[in-house]
Structure formats: C-alpha cells, structure tokens
Amino acid sequence: MTARHKGWFIFVVLALAVVPKLGTNPYALHVLSLVGIYAIVTMGLNLVFGYTGQISLGHAAYFAVGAYTSGILTLQLGAPFAVGMIAAVALAVVLGLLVGIPSLKLEGSYLAMATIGFGEIVKMLLVNWEHVTGGPAGISRIPHPGILGFTFNTADAKFYLILTFSAVAWLLYANLLMSHYGTRFIAVRDSAKAAAGMGIDVRRTKIQAFVFSTAYAGMAGALYAHLNRYIAPDAFHLGESINFLLIVVVGGMGTLLGPLMGSAIIVYLRESLLVLKDYNMLIFGLILMVLMVFMPRGLVGSAQLLVSKWRRRRA
C-alpha cells in the first residue's frame, strides 16, 4: 500500500471508531457490526468470484460452519473465544479444500449449481444432526466473546471487536490484491491459457482463492455467532449465499473496495426498505434487476469509470 492508501485506511478506521462515542444507539451499532461481518465474507468471495472468476452460491455454508464451530465450542465445551475462532477458520478451510479441489473442473452455471447443492447439504446437516447442532431450533445463549479476561458484552465493545477483525481482514486482503502476487488471480480469470503459459499454476491459484474465501467466511461466521448469540439453520440458507454474491456484484466485482461499499449498501438498503413493509423485498428485487442493467460494473466499478472518463476529458 502507498502512503495515500495507508492514510485513508487510518482515517476510515478512526472515523468508524468514533461512531459509538456519538451516542449512536445499540441497534445502529449492531447494524454497522453486521456490515463489517458481511464485508469480511465478501472480501473473500470477491477474490474467488470478482478476481478469479469462479462463482460460488454456497458461501453461507462456510459462514455457517464458522458460526456453529465457534458457537458449539464456546458454549458446550467452554472453550475461549480465541480457540473457537481458530477452530472456525480451520474447519472452514478444511471444508473449502474438500469442496474446492473436486469443483476445479466445473465452470459457470455448473459450478453455480454444484455450490448450491453443497450449501443445501450443509443446511440439511444443520437441521438433522440435532444432538450437535440443536436442529431447526439452533443454538442460543452463545457466550459473549472474551479476550484475555475482557468480555465484549456491550454493543460498543462488540462493535470495536468486529471493527478490529474487519480492519485486519481488510489489510491482508488489500495487501494481497495490491501486490504483484494478486495479479495472478485476474490472470486466471482473463485467460487461464495465457496464465499457464506464463508459469502460473492455474489450479493452485483457484484453490488458494477459494480457501482464502472460506477462511474469511469462517471467521465472519464465528463473529456473527458471538454478535447475535443465537444461530439457527434459517440464517444460512441459499438466500444468504445469494446475498453475499449480490453484495460483491452491487459493490463492484473485481474492485478492491467493492465488498465494503456493497455490504454497506445492501445492509442499509434492506434496513431502509423495511418501512415499505410487505413491499420491501419486491422493491429490492426490482432494484437489483435495474442495477444489473444500468450499473453492470457495480458502484465502485462505475465510479472508477466515471473518474477515468473525467480525467481523460480534462487531459
């Protein structure tokens, strides 16, 4: 990252850190925390989907695995939050490898459907493996997260915890994608043939992207479990996977900032459409259709296009 990027990063994190001090109500902080969690998931998904060009409609499954792993470990075995978090990420990574390797040869619609199928199988497991997952009722009273004796039991404290995780996740993600190493993902998307001709191991690259994304989804899932303190299979259905994908597309697939903007827009769009009551999802669907037609590059992509046009006109 350049000095300018670092400056922006510190500015945004500090600005967000001030939010709880402005007397923001707990619900608003909860929503903002959710934006952070979605941003973590979709940073990973953007690497797979926006940069490497592999679709996944099953990421709710990794999110669920993270949430359940940490939830069960901390609640039933009394493990500390850190252990739950590490286990959540590790299990999501293992599952990512198990799914990622066989799905290497699938593309496009086939991959989309295969990932949906996988997601549904995980959801069925959550519903039917009752003595571990609590079945359809899920798991409640998940402990507040605690680190080194400090318990994050207020909306403020949880917000700061999630802000920290999001900021670190962002740093690693941005470092990767702004490095020369990051170009190999786009190379695989644009021309797998040429990438191979330049010495890039295409399969390995795809798996790296996929596993990176499942690690992020697992991490976000664990945060989600401890933020809500209640998880049930309903929160991890196909609609949630679709939601993740939409965030990436609406934000701008293959743009660094897309997941952040997309998460904020989608979460707040949904919140603000709630005033429309029964009509809210109807309008949401409509907005999506319109966005695809008029903003195919997403918010960040379209903004970049405008800026570059404006610069060219001035030059």
């Binding site: 470092n175 990767l176 490095s179 020369h180 190493y181 990051g182 170009t183 190999r184 190379a187 990438a195 330049m198 010495g199 890039i200 790296q208 990176f212």
Partner: peptide, 14 residues
C-alpha cells in the same frame, strides 16, 4: 503476472 514465473513469493508473504 509474467514476472512471477520464477518468483519465490508465497501467498502468505504477499
């Protein structure tokens, strides 16, 4: 992309 042909850089390092 092409410069990475012989690069020893790993994902983690990046």
């Amino acid at each position: 992309v092409a410069c990475q042909c012989h690069s020893p850089i790993s994902l983690g390092a990046a």
